[in-house]
Design a protein around this nucleic acid. Structure first.
Lengths: 138, 138
DNA sequence: AATAAAATTGATAATCAATTTCAAATTGCT
DNA sequence: AGCAATTTGAAATTGATTATCAATTTTATT
């Protein structure tokens, strides 16, 4: 019922701005904290986490955990990019994220639902491996 | 060069036993700690983590991070099951893991390498979504 | 069985990300 | 301006994991 009112603050705006300026970057809460301190002024870490939680809740940002263990990573879900509809490949060596928007993937999901009864959630799934550059450098 | 010798202890044996008894379970370090305290006697948590690290190192166990954030999960890699060669689907609702051993997946990997230059790592990748039962219960 | 060398254990402390708390500041509205 | 609801942020807390290091256990060798 009662939706909480939403007060607009410079902190929330700045976190949103960070993602607008860095649409393809996977950032940690600390990355954003440092950006704010450098460019905008003081901010509390708790506020960063609260902003991020809110944006994840709203489906504006995707949160995932890297195996490196440096804390959670956050990345913009750009509706124009359809990040909620395609897969993400993440290179375990260089950290690059590849947006896999390709017809084959639709077939893949269809197969998984049809043959294994499993409904894939693209906002949570990340496929790990080596990108072309890093595989070549091995 | 000099490989360290490997002393066999009841602690290491008991952690291995835990996985033998629970081949399909994703356990946290704490799950195993509690199992030990209940069934086997006292153990230090540091020892649990060291055993798990060793087993991951040896390729006997897979470590991954759950989005829930309750710490890392560990699961047996059964060579007979070929868990290093197939995908894992994990239901975000009930936690069940489905081993996706199916010809379609080979085609999938082939496509990703061929068209996107990306070499998938099955030991790291987990595909999240809803299993049949949980999707029906929604 | 006794011994020595090497590795493992476990209690404790240290880290570090993330959350909670709560008083103070900010926001939106009239 | 005045007011209530919400947000902020500094500090304390939690919780998982790692580091430390003396004591214990294991293994190989007499």
């Amino acid at each position: 019922m009662e939706n909480k009112r939403n007060y607009h603050t410079r902190q929330q705006e700045a976190v949103a701005e960070y993602f607008r300026l860095n649409p393809d970057v996977c950032a940690t809460a600390d990355d954003i904290y440092l950006y704010f301190m450098r460019e905008k002024g003081k901010i509390g870490k708790a506020t960063i986490y609260r902003c991020l939680d809110r944006m994840v809740e709203n489906g504006e940002v995707k949160r995932f955990l890297s195996d490196g263990g440096d804390g959670a990573m956050y990345q913009l879900i750009d509706p124009a990019n359809g990040c909620d509809r395609h897969f993400h490949l993440k290179c375990t060596s260089c950290g690059r994220v590849i947006h896999l928007d390709c017809g084959f993937m639709a077939a893949f999901e269809k197969h998984i639902v049809g043959h294994h009864g499993f409904r894939v959630d693209n906002t949570r799934t990340i496929i790990y491996g080596l990108c072309e550059t890093c595989a070549a450098a091995q």
